[in-house]
């Protein structure tokens, strides 16, 4: 038994093999070992949501999962979301609605928004706010972020 483990996972469609220290969490692995610095590390306690990304089709906190636990998984980070139509629509809508200023929260906001839309979430501001309540933004006041998500749902092309 070693304190390092060999893992193999698919990140944004690309197979990655690596030997990682067990204590390394998934978002640190993606940033420091794979070089994908789009997912941000905020609080490391699961509170801020900046590291939210997709593992095997569900949104998770990248800081609350060990890299070794992603062995055999399919991971999508902000660098990979434009492979999906809904990802591209959200990216465009965030720009059009000024839904980001510093951009620190944006990768997590997009990951949580993709999950909301893919689950058939309604164009209901209160429901969108509730779904995004686990993602902190310190710039925009959220109004424009909700505007962006609403606009994508209202266009209806995400289904």
């Amino acid at each position: 038994m070693a304190q390092t483990q060999d893992i193999e996972l698919v990140v944004n469609g690309e197979t990655i093999q690596a030997s990682v220290p067990v204590r390394t969490n998934l978002v640190d692995f993606l940033r420091d070992h794979v070089g994908l610095t789009g997912s941000h590390v905020g609080c490391e306690q699961g509170v801020c949501g900046a590291c939210t990304l997709e593992v095997d089709g569900v949104a998770v906190r990248g800081c609350l999962m060990l890299a070794v636990q992603a062995n055999g998984s399919q991971v999508t980070t902000i660098e990979g979301v434009s492979a999906k139509l809904v990802g591209r629509q959200l990216q465009r809508a965030f720009v059009e609605h000024n839904a980001l200023q510093c951009g620190f929260c944006t990768p997590g906001m997009i990951a949580s928004s993709i999950e909301y839309i893919e689950q058939g979430g309604a164009s209901d501001r209160a429901a969108i706010r509730e779904h995004l309540s686990g993602n902190y933004c310190r710039c925009t006041g959220y109004q424009s972020i909700v505007d962006a998500v609403v606009s994508v749902i209202d266009k209806g092309a995400a289904a």
Binding site: G46, G49, V58, A59, V60, L64, M65, G134
Partner: peptide, 9 residues
């Protein structure tokens, strides 16, 4: 209980 991404795990 927490938020969606936390409830997923």
């Amino acid at each position: 209980v927490a938020h969606s991404a936390v409830r997923n795990r």
